[in-house]
Deep mutational scan, measured.
Amino acid sequence: STGEEYIAVGDFTAQQVGDLTFKKGEILLVIEKKPDGWWIAKDAKGNEGLVPRTYLEPYS
């Protein structure tokens, strides 16, 4: 699937089932941008889950 690459600007630990845990500096592939501010993203290992958009910045 296609998506946009974003870099994590902080650590995030999953708070509920379906969230994706990530560390600062990780590159995430954003698959869907939901209007509530929680985006669906995939990490380098292929894990998929919800992430808070405030922790992400476009990666170029």
Rank of each mutant, 00 (worst) to 15 (best):
L29C: 04
T2K: 13
Q16W: 02
L29I: 07
L29T: 12
A14V: 08
D19C: 15
A44H: 10
V9R: 10
V30W: 00
D19K: 14
I27F: 13
L28A: 03
D43P: 02
D43E: 03
L29M: 12
E4L: 10
I7R: 08
V9K: 05
I40L: 09
V9I: 04
D36V: 10
K45R: 08
L20T: 01
K24W: 03
L50R: 15
P35C: 13
K23D: 03
L28N: 01
D11N: 09
G37Y: 08
K24A: 04
A44Y: 10
A14D: 05
G49W: 01
P58N: 05
Q16K: 15
V9D: 04
G49K: 01
I7G: 02
A44C: 05
D36M: 12
I27L: 06
I31L: 10
Y6M: 08
K42R: 09
V17T: 05
Q16A: 11
E57M: 02
P35A: 08
F22W: 03
W39I: 06
F22Y: 11
E32D: 04
Y59I: 10
E48D: 13
N47W: 09
R53K: 15
Y59R: 13
V9G: 10
I40D: 10
D11Q: 07
Q16G: 12
L28Q: 01
G25Q: 10
K42S: 13
P52R: 15
K42L: 06
L29G: 11
T54H: 13
N47V: 08
L29H: 03
S60K: 07
N47M: 12
I31A: 08
L28V: 08
L50E: 04
K45S: 13
A8N: 00
G49P: 00
D43M: 03
D43T: 07
G46T: 06
A44P: 13
W38I: 15
V17G: 11
K42W: 02
G25H: 10
V17C: 08
Q16M: 05
D43W: 00
K45G: 13
T2C: 11
K23M: 05
K42C: 05
G46Y: 06
V17L: 05
L56I: 12
E32K: 05
L28D: 00
G3F: 15
K24V: 04
I7K: 07
T54S: 14
I31G: 10
I7S: 04
V17K: 04
V51G: 02
F22T: 11
K33P: 04
L20F: 12
F22V: 12
A8Y: 01
A41N: 00
V30Q: 01
N47G: 09
T13H: 08
P35R: 09
D36P: 03
F22G: 08
S1K: 14
G37I: 14
P52W: 15
K42E: 10
G49R: 01
K24C: 06
G3N: 11
F22D: 00
R53F: 01
Q15E: 09
V51C: 08
L56F: 14
E57Q: 02
P52M: 15
T21H: 08
R53S: 13
P52G: 15
W39K: 01
A14G: 09
K42H: 09
A41E: 00
L28I: 07
K24M: 05
K23N: 14
P35T: 10
P58G: 08
N47R: 09
G25K: 10
L28K: 01
E4H: 01
Y59A: 07
V51Y: 00
P52I: 06
D43A: 05
F12C: 15
K45W: 11
F12T: 06
T54E: 15
S60F: 11
S1Y: 13
D19V: 14
I40S: 09
T2H: 01
G49C: 02
P35M: 08
G25V: 00
K33V: 08
F12M: 09
I40E: 04
F12I: 14
G37L: 08
K45L: 06
K45C: 05
V30T: 03
I40H: 12
G10D: 09
Q15T: 13
D19Q: 15
W38T: 15
P35G: 10
R53E: 15
A41D: 00
Q15C: 06
D11M: 04
K23E: 13
Y59P: 15
V9T: 11
A14T: 13
D36A: 02
V17M: 08
S1E: 12
A8V: 06
P52A: 14
G18K: 14
E4M: 13
G37D: 14
L28M: 10
Q15D: 08
Y6N: 03
K33G: 03
A44G: 11
G46H: 06
E26F: 04
E26I: 02
T13N: 05
K42Y: 05
G46A: 12
T54D: 15
K34T: 08
F22S: 03
K24D: 11
F22I: 09
W38M: 15
E4S: 13
A44V: 08
G10L: 12
V17Q: 06
A14R: 09
I40N: 14
L50P: 13
D19T: 15
W38E: 15
T13W: 02
S60W: 08
F12P: 03
T54F: 04
K33E: 09
W39P: 01
G3H: 04
E57V: 01
G3L: 14
L29D: 13
I27G: 06
F12W: 11
V30E: 01
I7T: 09
V17D: 03
E57A: 13
I31D: 09
S1R: 05
P35D: 08
K42N: 09
A14E: 05
N47Y: 04
G49Q: 01
E32P: 01
T2R: 07
K23C: 12
I40V: 11
D11V: 02
S1P: 01
A14Y: 04
W39D: 07
P58T: 07
Y55F: 10
Y55N: 13
R53N: 10
E4F: 13
D36L: 10
D19R: 15
G3S: 14
R53D: 15
V51W: 00
S1T: 11
G10H: 03
G10E: 03
E5V: 01
N47S: 13
V51N: 00
L20K: 03
G49D: 00
V17E: 07
G46F: 04
D43Q: 05
V30M: 04
E57T: 02
Q15R: 13
F22C: 12
T21E: 11
G18T: 13
Q16P: 11
G10P: 00
